[in-house]
Amino acid sequence: MALLDVQNLGISFGGLRAVDGFNLSIEKGQLYGLIGPNGAGKTTIFNLLTGVYKPNEGIIKLDGTDITGQRTIDINKSGVARTFQNIRLFKDLSVLDNVKVGLHNNHHYNTFEGLFRLPKYFKIEKEMNEKAMELLKVFDLDKEADYLASNLPYGKQRKLEIARALATDPKLLLLDEPAAGMNPNETKELMDTIRFVRDNFEMTILLIEHDMKLVSGICEKLTVLNFGKVLCQGDTTTVLNDPEVIKAYLGE
């Protein structure tokens, strides 16, 4: 059974049909790409999957359970985490604290224990610190743990966003243009990181990307979106050679 199963998803904003009849099925452990020209509705689909928008029609199933129309925080608790196209870090918190916010729901002590620093506070905080440092190490951010998130260079901010998303212990990771604004070297490094995350965390990843080198380099399957509709779906090489896709993406 597919980890993520989306059927006939659709949403309209006023008269604009942003997404129409969208189907998607991602197997566990797959690295899946969602591509398409600007304004095709890719980020809208992410927003639908994470509950930022409620779909007008369609069903979203995660691991067999229906999560359609749930609140963002509940969808996150069910196991969907995401990053954002325009980086959204907690800029005045330290790098470490950014990840610890991600750990919020999996490491619990109550307000009273926090306010009065009961033993459980120290125990759980220690656990959180260790877990967060472990994650930061994966992304080579452990040396910057004390920095303010806003003081990180751009490429590292992108990585921190992924680390924070992973801290929520998701089943499905959504990456919205992870390579945007990166130079070729950074992109290459990012590709390795994404592969590493998939292999080591046994993660299923759906990513939106414009960088064709990254897409063809790491994605196993692709869905091409144009004007809110699926243009083509299938294996990466097949899709990228499809004349329709080339026409929509690169022009005639």
């Binding site: 994470t50 930022v52 963002t72 925080i73 996150n76 608790k77 985490a81 995401r82 954002f84 959204r88 870090l89 907690f90 800029k91 916010v101 991600g102 919020h104 729901n105 924070r164 998303a165 801290a167 929520t168």
Partner: peptide, 9 residues
Amino acid sequence: NRIAAESVG
């Protein structure tokens, strides 16, 4: 960042 906070639950 309210939206990001919501996205991590």
